[in-house]
């Protein structure tokens, strides 16, 4: 009674719906809440499931190879003739080739990337930084087959003409292109972690009489080392997993360069071998399984790198929070 009267007086045409929910409304709310939670969970979990399934599938297809052929030949022989009458599965040169181009790409990319990150976060004005960083990140948007064409049609003839190399598609060519492709990842993550180092640290350094150079190289970079290492490892993963570019630029010769430092010889990587050979193999043949065995090696390597980068990224987060 009382309640009705008040409502009538203040707002004659107001919705006089009861505040208490009916059983149906209550149930609806409950159902929507839990349905929403469940569907979001399902979507996120499906990503996890996909990763697990990939692991499962690659191991399921690749492990029989190690069971049938053992691991000695695979890791010690350089003879990769999977379709010969007496097939040989020596992947040593292929694994070494992948490590070669990855390390050479990092040697080229890391100094440039870290100096760029320092320049963008410490030296240049905010305005120019906001202009340059998106352009660097644009490098990541170029399709890898476009890089591959550049490698074969421009870089290879250039290397031959300028350095007198007999072949332009070689480890050096692939490394240069991979370095360019790894740059945006490394610059972006390293720049973030350098920027995250607090102002107090820099001011303390200046206060003690350090120059700008000393502050950057002896205070800021050491303080940001976790993030920078994580950036390098992420760039490394980008390089080792890249397929199309190395398939076009590395020459795919199944050899370990001799002498070992001669990057101007052509090499073959794990990813290129899988991509190049997969087309012809009959399903469940030893050749088919051997490619999955290479896939296992590749997966284990990137997985380890991922764990390393997660570790350093986590400790980078901790450091910046600690201050």
């Amino acid at each position: 009674m009382e309640y009705n009267k008040v409502q009538m007086n203040t707002e004659p045409k107001a919705d006089n719906r009861s505040l208490a929910l009916t059983a149906l409304e209550d149930f609806k709310g409950f159902a929507f809440y839990h349905l929403g939670r469940f569907s979001l969970f399902a979507v996120s979990f499906s990503t996890v499931l996909i990763v697990l399934l990939i692991f499962f599938f690659v191991f399921q297809q690749g492990l029989p190879f190690f069971k049938n052929f053992g691991i000695t030949e695979f890791f010690t022989s350089k003879q990769w003739y999977p379709e010969a009458r007496k097939p040989e599965f020596g992947a040593l040169a292929i694994i070494v080739g992948s490590i070669y181009v990855t390390i050479a790409a990092l040697v080229l990319a890391v100094p440039a990337a870290i100096l760029t990150a320092v320049f963008l976060s410490e030296i240049v004005s905010h305005k120019i930084r906001n202009l340059v960083k998106p352009v660097i990140e644009l490098l990541a948007a170029i399709p890898s087959v476009a890089y591959g064409f550049f490698a074969v049609l421009v870089l290879a003839p250039f290397l031959q003409a300028e350095f007198g190399l007999s072949t332009g598609t070689n480890a050096l060519n692939a490394s240069i292109i991979l370095a360019i492709m790894a740059l945006p990842t490394i610059v972006s993550v390293a720049e973030d972690s350098i920027t995250a180092i607090g102002r107090d640290l820099r001011e303390a350094s200046y206060g003690l009489g350090a120059t700008r150079f000393e502050t950057i190289f002896f205070v800021v970079i050491p303080a940001a080392h976790s993030g920078i290492i994580a950036a390098i490892v992420l760039g490394m993963m980008r390089a080792i997993g890249e397929t199309m570019v190395v398939w076009m630029a590395s020459g795919n010769a199944n050899q370990i360069p001799s002498p070992w430092w001669d990057l101007t010889q052509s090499v073959r990587t794990m990813t290129a071998t899988i991509a190049g050979d997969m087309g012809e193999t009959a399903k469940s043949s030893p050749h088919y399984q051997s490619l999955f065995a290479i896939g296992i090696i590749l997966l284990v390597m990137t997985f380890l790198m991922n764990i390393i980068s997660e570790y350093f990224l986590a400790s980078a987060g901790k450091n910046s929070r600690k201050k």
Binding site: Y81, V152, T167, G168, T169, W247
Partner: peptide
């Protein structure tokens, strides 16, 4: 068996362009 130093390319046009630009 082909020698280990043999390079491989994935298409006829790509092989053509490699030979076109490489003296040896």
């Amino acid at each position: 068996k082909m020698d280990a130093s043999i390079e491989y390319v994935s298409s006829n046009p790509q092989l053509h362009s490699r030979v076109k630009t490489t003296a040896g």
